[in-house]
């Protein structure tokens, strides 16, 4: 590092430069993992093919809300806007697809290629690493469980003749919108990451996530059809139904198509089931990552 301004060696100097700037420590490290995780989940900085599923599902998730709002604004009151509670259930099929495709990006390669010791030799702990990955996936999933519903909310308010009046009518729904969106995103991200952390390859991880949701959904549907008391356990084989029941318990508002409707189970049970699902997912993550050697 030459300090003389006229020296050509300033340009050609290949000497080692020390770093005297700030070190952001654990917070900086966690922030970096969340940021990189979010980018990976959305396929940013990767080839076009990596963007198809995340952006495709996000667009598909937004489309119904966007179109409905657009018609409402441009044409007028000819369509009924979706209710907030219906919306996430309606686009529910997109959630397993998004998680199956994107959650493996976050955890599988670090485990498979033994990258974790490189993380653990930095100013973070194991729990920080898992929490950061979980935050990244949860934030990405909010693009499906919260963003479209907020679009719907904005549409309802903005399309009204009496803006303030509409805002006053709708604003009470915001806690439910945020609460439901956050719970869905966090629980599904935890479940998805837990499943992926057990898989040896990304493809297996994706398959396992899809299997859990698809098989769960099919069993749930079958139990509902068969009836004879079995409909009361039907919601509990499907993570999305468990979450819908929890949403109803906390914020109210039924969804006709959900197996929760007609199951006749006390709503707090769904809250309990969600807690069990979340607890099992986090416990799986904790055990899985405790077993990783440094």
């Amino acid at each position: 590092m030459s300090t003389s301004p006229d020296s050509a060696s300033t340009i050609y100097d290949l000497g080692y430069r020390r770093y005297e700037g700030p070190r952001l420590g654990r917070r900086g490290a966690i922030g970096a993992i969340v940021g990189a995780g979010l980018r990976a989940t959305l396929g940013l900085g990767r080839g076009g093919r990596s963007k198809i599923i995340p952006w495709g599902t996000l667009v598909l998730g937004l489309l119904p809300a966007g179109v409905a709002v657009a018609i409402r604004v441009l044409v007028g009151d000819i369509v009924e806007l979706y209710s907030y509670e219906n919306y996430v259930w309606g686009i529910g099929a997109l959630l397993p697809i998004f998680i199956a495709a994107q959650a493996p990006e976050l955890v599988v390669n670090d485990l498979r290629h033994r990258v974790l010791p490189l993380y653990f030799s930095r100013p973070i702990g194991r729990a920080d690493y898992v929490a950061a990955k979980l935050a990244a996936l949860s934030l990405a999933v909010l693009g499906l469980t919260l963003l479209p519903v907020l679009v719907l909310f904005a549409g309802r308010v903005l399309a009204a003749e009496d803006l303030l009046g509409a805002l006053g009518d709708e604003i009470g729904a915001l806690p439910a919108i945020f609460g439901s969106g956050l719970i869905h995103a966090f629980v599904l991200a935890s479940l998805g990451l837990a499943i992926c952390s057990l898989a040896g390859r990304r493809a297996y991880a994706a398959g396992a996530v899809l299997a859990v949701f698809l098989i769960g959904g099919v069993i749930s549907g079958t139990l509902q059809e068969v009836g004879g008391g079995l409909e009361s356990i039907a919601p509990f084989t499907n993570p999305l139904a468990i979450l819908d029941g929890t949403r109803q318990w906390l914020f109210g508002g039924g969804v006709a198509e959900s197996p929760v409707t007609g199951a006749g189970v006390a709503l707090p049970i769904y809250g309990l089931a969600t807690a069990v699902l979340l607890g099992a997912s986090l416990a799986t993550l904790a055990v899985r990552y405790r077993g990783v050697s440094t």
């Binding site: 770093y19 700037g21 070190r23 490290a29 900085g45 390669n109 033994r114 990258v115 490189l118």
Partner: peptide, 27 residues
């Protein structure tokens, strides 16, 4: 620098080293 292989195959050296730099606390 650990003894065993510890690098993800699907990212470039530039991307990986920069990321690890940030995880070490660099802006």
């Amino acid at each position: 620098m650990p003894e065993h292989e510890s690098l993800p195959p699907d990212v470039s050296a530039t991307e990986f080293v920069a990321h690890m730099g940030r995880v070490s606390g660099l802006p």
